[in-house]
């Protein structure tokens, strides 16, 4: 979950990405700050404008140094890329950068997830090279039925809901027996 870059309080629900001259910029803001800045999804304010807004608000408030201002630059010994290159372009130099920049990169990757501290185990769930994956068809079917059930209830189609419920129960019984 991103936190709004303007108020730094609310969760950001509006995410914008812009690539200009190979430089990637991302802005994450909350709805109330978006509304306050007169940002309308359909008119789509330009990203530099929004970045400008964020900077202005920061200057006006308590003198908080930029998150990276006092950071020392880090160098990847393998490919020679620097952390500052990544900050400027949004792209890493080589797979080794994930190790070289771990301290800084890990929180960025983990902030999408529930786990944050380094050393809390793998973040990745899913396929590994050389290990084939098979999608669990029972789980998939159960999930689809649950979704259908929810929708049927919300749309007050109770007969459909009852039918889906009994299908779901039958599926669960079958998988338990198996």
């Amino acid at each position: 979950m991103y936190i709004c870059q303007i108020c730094k309080k609310h969760p950001a629900t509006i995410h914008l990405t812009d690539i200009h001259n190979n430089v990637k910029k991302e802005v994450h803001i909350c709805e109330s700050c978006a509304a306050e800045k007169g940002f309308n999804m359909q008119t789509a304010a330009s990203l530099p404008q929004l970045l400008g807004m964020a900077a202005k608000k920061k200057d006006a408030g308590a003198p908080k140094p930029s998150r990276f201002a006092s950071d020392e630059d880090i160098l990847c010994p393998k490919c020679g890329s620097r952390w500052s290159d990544f900050k400027a372009k949004g792209r890493l130099g080589c797979p080794e950068d994930y190790t070289a920049f771990k301290e800084k990169l890990h929180p960025l990757i983990a902030c999408q997830l529930a786990v944050v501290p380094i050393g809390s185990g793998p973040l990745h769930v899913g396929k590994h090279p050389g290990k084939r994956i098979v999608i669990d068809s029972v789980a998939r079917e159960a999930r689809n039925l649950e979704l259908g059930l929810k929708r049927a209830v919300s749309e007050e189609r109770y007969e459909d809901a009852a039918r889906i419920k009994s299908e779901l129960d039958a599926l669960k019984t079958r998988s338990r027996e198996a």
């Binding site: 890493l92 973040l123 990745h124």
Partner: peptide, 14 residues
């Protein structure tokens, strides 16, 4: 393929 047990498949953009 570039793969890390913690982060999974490693990509140019995180």
């Amino acid at each position: 393929f570039a793969f890390d047990p913690i982060y999974g498949y490693l990509t140019s953009c995180p």
